[in-house]
Design a binder for these strands. Structure first.
Length: 503
DNA sequence: TACAAAGACTCAGAAAATTTGAG
DNA sequence: TCTCAAATTTTCTGAGTCTTTGT
């Protein structure tokens, strides 16, 4: 913790010290009055040593550890739902620690307290025997609510929010919910044209609310922005989504880089990830935004008459179950399908097909603004890969000359041995070429992926049936695109999808 | 009936843990 | 086949969205 940048932040230090003092005895409080004078290095070293000691364990000891952990999973990691044994997603409750939060969180550094059995609500069926609380303790409550999916819950002390113990993504329950989500998005496909016509028409509405709603929908549809609920000021980091955009987040350019009517976005979104984009928009949208911004201060809301409740209410009147986030799912999935069609050739080899798949996935991640910090070792690993490629090229050149030599020799002294030699050398050349191509594709993929996180879209936005159908059509084994966990999560799609599936 | 707060669930990237593969 | 670093997978828990509840 000490080597983290956030321990140097003023807010973090102040919050921590304030909460720490609350935990001190009267004597301690008298002595410890200034965080600057506290030296945690010994404590830090103690923890570091512990980590090192664990790393240094022998093979057998590590295996013992693993077995012991597995036993815990076997005992506590499952529940019985509708007489099916299902894996629990997070069966361990959150240990105490210092709250970090993302971005400039006003509560960073606060003490996250240890959860006691007295804080925990157990939710199980009436017939079930609830788990026994630790000796000398009791649960806050044992209830039997079959309208919700959680098994246990508690209220966390930093933000006052409720935390839940829920099922793993590979459970039947979550799988069905996932399927429903994509079915709603597919329904949107069939009426998106008329919805688009609708909001384009509303851009000229006499009512300000309708115009603001239309522009917001235009952004949500075109740019896959999140809805943007209002947040309590001072309780969380200052981030926004579509409906909560402020004037300061937008710059208008009548003309920019050869395009007309360009909107420049610059704001912090979910998890304080920066959204920066310059987008040419249609004239009517541009004019409306100008109008919305008129005589407003930078800190004022762009859509002062609109909020997510109003927006979603309107959407649900256009299509059952339609909300702002469905547009993200729909646009993500339809983009994947289009990109896969555009980028992949049946005649490509598997490595080339996989690069295309990753590129299609990447197009979606960019649309949804899924970013990651470039890996710390990125430059090094890139350099390593390039030097490997150079080495392989040299090896290939050598293999080629050897092949030529072998062919020459076969001509001079015709015999089974020299024929064998030619075959062997030819195979070596082929192998070398394949490996070289594979590495070059890998280098391209990695370079393009430097700051892009593919996982989130793959796991949460892309209808898995599109990928399964693509694999079938392209003769790519499903294991190449989904690892074991992902295959478990998407088992429903892998089971039911035919090659002709269309999103 | 409106609207705010509470509740329940999905989605999010970082970090830790584990596996892989090159030498 | 052993070792080590890099790559991949898993875990963790915070941050959103949207629905339900209560006043």
């Amino acid at each position: 913790m000490l080597d983290h940048e956030y321990t140097t932040k003023k807010v973090f230090r102040e919050n921590f010290f304030k909460d720490w003092r609350k935990e001190m005895t009267r004597q301690e409080r008298l002595v410890i009055t200034d965080l600057e004078k506290c030296d945690f290095r010994e404590l830090h070293a103690f923890h570091k040593d512990k980590v090192e000691a664990r790393k240094a364990l022998s093979k057998e000891e590590k295996q013992d550890q693993k077995d012991a952990n597995q036993k815990i999973v076997d005992k506590y990691g499952y529940c019985l739902l509708d007489s099916h044994r299902e894996r629990i997603g997070n069966f361990k409750l959150e240990p105490p620690g210092l709250f970090r939060g993302r971005g400039e969180h006003p509560k960073q550094g606060m003490l996250k307290k240890r959860i006691q059995p007295e804080d925990v609500i157990i939710n199980c069926s009436k017939e079930a025997t609830p788990p026994a609380p630790p000796a000398g303790h009791h649960w806050k409550e044992v209830r039997h609510d079959n309208t919700v999916t959680w098994l246990a819950s508690w209220t966390e002390n930093v933000q006052g929010s409720i935390k839940y113990i829920m099922l793993n993504a590979n459970s039947k329950l979550k799988g069905e919910k996932d399927w429903e989500k994509y079915e709603v998005a597919r329904k949107l496909k069939s009426c998106v044209d008329s919805i688009r016509d609708g909001y384009l028409r509303d851009l000229k509405s006499k009512q300000m609310v309708a115009r603001q709603r239309a522009v917001a929908l235009y952004f949500i549809d075109k740019l896959a922005l999140r809805a943007g609920n209002e947040k309590e000021e001072g309780e969380t980091a200052d981030t926004v989504g579509c409906c909560s955009l402020r004037v300061e987040h937008i710059t208008l350019h009548d003309e920019l880089d050869g395009s007309e009517c360009v909107v420049e976005f610059d704001f912090l979104g979910k998890d304080s990830i920066r959204y920066y984009n310059k987008v040419p928009v249609i004239k009517k949208v541009f004019k409306n935004i100008k109008l919305f911004m008129e005589s407003k201060d930078p800190g004022d809301e762009l859509f002062d008459r609109l909020n997510t409740a109003l927006l979603n209410k309107h959407l649900s009147s256009l299509m059952p179950d339609l909300t702002a986030k469905v547009f993200r799912t729909y646009n993500a999935s339809i983009t994947l399908q289009q990109q896969l069609r555009q980028l992949t050739n049946k005649s490509d080899n598997v490595a080339e097909k996989l690069l295309s798949y990753n590129r299609a996935n990447r197009a979606v991640a960019i649309l949804c603004n899924h970013q990651r910090a470039p890996p710390k070792t990125f430059e090094q690993s890139m350099a390593n890969l390039h030097s490997k490629i150079v080495a392989r090229k040299e090896q290939l050149a050598l293999a080629k000359t050897e092949l030529k030599l072998a062919k020459k020799e076969m001509k001079t002294k015709d015999g089974p041995d020299s024929k064998l030699m030619v075959d062997r050398k030819a195979a070596a050349v082929k192998r070398c070429e394949d490996q070289l191509l594979k590495m070059e594709l890998q280098a391209t993929d990695r370079e393009e992926n430097k700051q892009i996180a593919l996982g989130t879209s793959k796991l949460n936005y892309l209808d898995p049936r599109i990928s399964v159908a693509w694999c079938k059509n392209m003769d790519v084994p499903i294991e190449k695109i989904y690892n074991k966990t992902q295959r478990e999560k998407f088992a429903w799609a892998i089971d039911m999808t035919e090659a002709d599936f269309e999103f």
